[in-house]
């Protein structure tokens, strides 16, 4: 399954009243890859978390396929993320004391038993494809690149339609970062998933289909990648 994104009049304001994000309109085709760049503090992460339905005081419409996240209660938004969204973070956010396999199949702990099996086999499949052959080892002995691969496996294990990545290469060296983004894009494109990746790293956003630049909470540029 693939999902496209439609944003209408998305606005996020801080408790102080300051405008954090203002996106009047944005459409993203199903299966496309969007890079989000911009200076620090410009609202990139707020934009990304809004797409996941994690920002509480957002108004407007963030619609994935037919589902407008902003009109749903928190429980339903969590259920949507569980089903349709995989997330990758800058500093991996793994459970250090768990094995790579257990980390990758984390969502199995709270899914129904039938689904749990599918998650576990998918997690193993992705780990193998990403070259992690020692899945039984706890991740505290892993390098940064290996950890981010485990995190990517975790994001893909429940076979979501959407991957949201927040600075996925920021903690990695150049060579590792390049290899990782190649792998991520290959995985996403192979399965027709929609990817939104926030990054400072030109090596990341230049490989996307389309790049938007957010400055002061607004989309300053929106263009096809070079």
């Amino acid at each position: 399954m693939t999902l496209g994104l439609t944003i209408n009049a998305l606005a996020v304001t801080a408790a102080s009243g300051r405008m954090l994000l203002d996106v009047p309109k944005l459409h993203l085709a199903p299966g496309s890859c969007l890079g989000v760049r911009g200076p620090s503090g410009a609202g990139k992460s707020t934009f990304l978390f809004s797409l996941a339905g994690l920002i509480e005081n957002a108004s407007g419409a963030v619609t994935w396929g037919e589902t407008n996240l902003l009109q749903m209660p928190a429980g339903a938004r969590a259920a949507f993320r569980r089903r349709s969204v995989g997330m990758v973070f800058q500093d991996f956010l793994l459970f250090e004391e768990l094995s790579a396999s257990a980390n990758a199949a984390l969502s199995g702990a709270y899914s129904d038993p039938a689904h749990q099996k599918a998650i576990e086999s998918k997690a193993e499949e992705v780990l193998t494809r990403l070259g992690i052959s020692h899945g039984a080892r706890t991740v505290d002995s892993f390098s940064g690149g290996e950890r981010q691969r485990v995190a990517i496996a975790r994001a893909l294990a429940s076979d979501p339609a959407v991957i949201l990545a927040d600075e996925p290469t920021a903690s990695l060296d150049r060579k590792t970062a390049d290899a990782l983004i190649d792998d991520l894009l290959a995985l996403v494109r192979d399965t027709g998933k929609t990817l939104v990746a926030v990054s400072h790293d030109p090596a990341v956003y230049t490989r996307m289909d389309r790049v938007i630049e957010i400055v002061d909470g607004r989309i300053a540029t929106d263009e096809a990648a070079r």
């Binding site: 996941a52 994690l54 928190a74 429980g75 969590a78 259920a79 949507f80 993320r81 569980r82 089903r83 969204v85 997330m87 973070f89 956010l93 459970f95 984390l106 969502s107 702990a109 709270y110 975790r154």
Partner: peptide
């Protein structure tokens, strides 16, 4: 807190 927040960001039910 960060790990619990991660679980919730990934869509884990509150009850979990």
């Amino acid at each position: 807190a960060r790990r619990l927040a991660l679980l919730r960001a990934l869509g884990a039910p509150s009850r979990f």
